[in-house]
Design a protein around this nucleic acid. Structure first.
Lengths: 205, 205
DNA sequence: GTCTATACTACGATAGAC
DNA sequence: GTCTATCGTAGTATAGAC
């Protein structure tokens, strides 16, 4: 049971994906590299290439895992939010913030442009399921058209990604903001955007 | 007046900053490099180092320029939005989207973590002025406390950055969304977030 | 102030030993 | 299935010629 050296892992493939998330959480795609992942696991820089054809295929596997896990986190948050459709969709913003801060693998990773042409059925299925889940949560709030449901998804994702991204970049550092703090603000902002405006000018009320 | 070769520029320093913006708009910080900027201008890879001590000093100059220009764009958008304080602050979101799509130099570049410890008075002055302008626009909407004004700034910036970032990453590609389309959506979302909720539940109205 | 040439580093990727 | 060794490429940065 030697643990210190030569890292004989039962499932290096899974370990590579796991270590990739750690790297992404720490330095973003910016500092992610196959070599750095291998280094972190104590294996040679050649080892990952037994499990992934190249860097993009590793990223694709990360994308698939992230899409799956994010979808699970969003579904759990929606269920925890209760039956109200607006609250359920809004909760996805908070779940997104928490997931991205923890893993570094948000939409820019999941839907990275460099993966667009890479065929990977597992990834395509997971990313599609993620979008479907978001769309269903949006549709449940009762928008009259498909297009308006899409706008709700985009608004929710935009506000979630905005808060998550600025937090990850240290923009809120001067306030002693915690992840939960930012997640709560993202959720509240999403709720405000989703709630159909009840005639905003006072003159009509 | 040979233009083709040997690029004898009157102001290579300014040209480097300008070409850097082009690179950032095309590929983000991801693909930015001193070598690529020099290549684009047709100068040797050593030339930039006569004008900037190292890569981070070039990035710092880019940050200062971006902070100055973004502040100007925001001020202009606010003035174009008229006298209403909410509309003025909301307009900054649209201005941010347009500026980032055009230049690639948004908050993650302007306030990049790698610049945090780099002393550069010119940059510090421009970034401070930018934040001051945003804060004043937020304060004009009448929040009761300093902290609430800060929350308004953060919400506005978050939604603007979310839309700009997802657009730049091609997330909205399936819709034939234009920059102006996304900018309008960001502005409208910001307005919704800024507008004090007129008692959202119907029971009280 | 820009050039050529070069040293060093890091990463992506492959070949062949074990 | 992992290792060592290696190649090719690209980027940061410096030295010295012009």
């Amino acid at each position: 049971m030697s643990v210190d050296r030569a890292y004989h892992h039962g499932d290096l493939r899974a370990a590579l994906i796991g270590a990739s998330f750690d790297l992404l959480a720490e330095g973003g795609l910016q500092r992610f590299s196959v070599a750095a992942v291998a280094r972190r696991l104590g294996v040679s820089s050649a080892a990952p290439y037994r499990h992934f054809a190249d860097r993009d295929h590793l990223l694709s596997a990360i994308s698939a895992t992230a899409a799956h896990d994010l979808r699970a986190a969003i579904s759990a948050a929606a269920d925890a939010a209760g039956p109200d459709a607006t609250a359920r969709l809004a909760a996805t913003a908070g779940a997104y913030v928490r997931y991205v801060v923890r893993t570094g693998a948000g939409f820019p990773v999941i839907y990275a442009a460099e993966l667009y042409e890479l065929a990977d059925d597992a990834r395509r299925e997971q990313t599609r399921a993620l979008m479907t889940t978001l769309f269903e949560l949006a549709a449940a709030t009762g928008p009259p058209t498909y297009h308006e449901a899409l706008l709700l998804v985009e608004a929710t994702v935009a506000v979630a990604h905005g808060y998550a991204s600025l937090f990850a970049d240290g923009f809120f550092a001067r306030n002693a903001s915690t992840v939960d703090d930012i997640a709560a603000r993202a959720t509240e902002a999403a709720r405000t955007l989703i709630t159909p405006p009840p005639r905003r000018r006072r003159t009509t009320d």
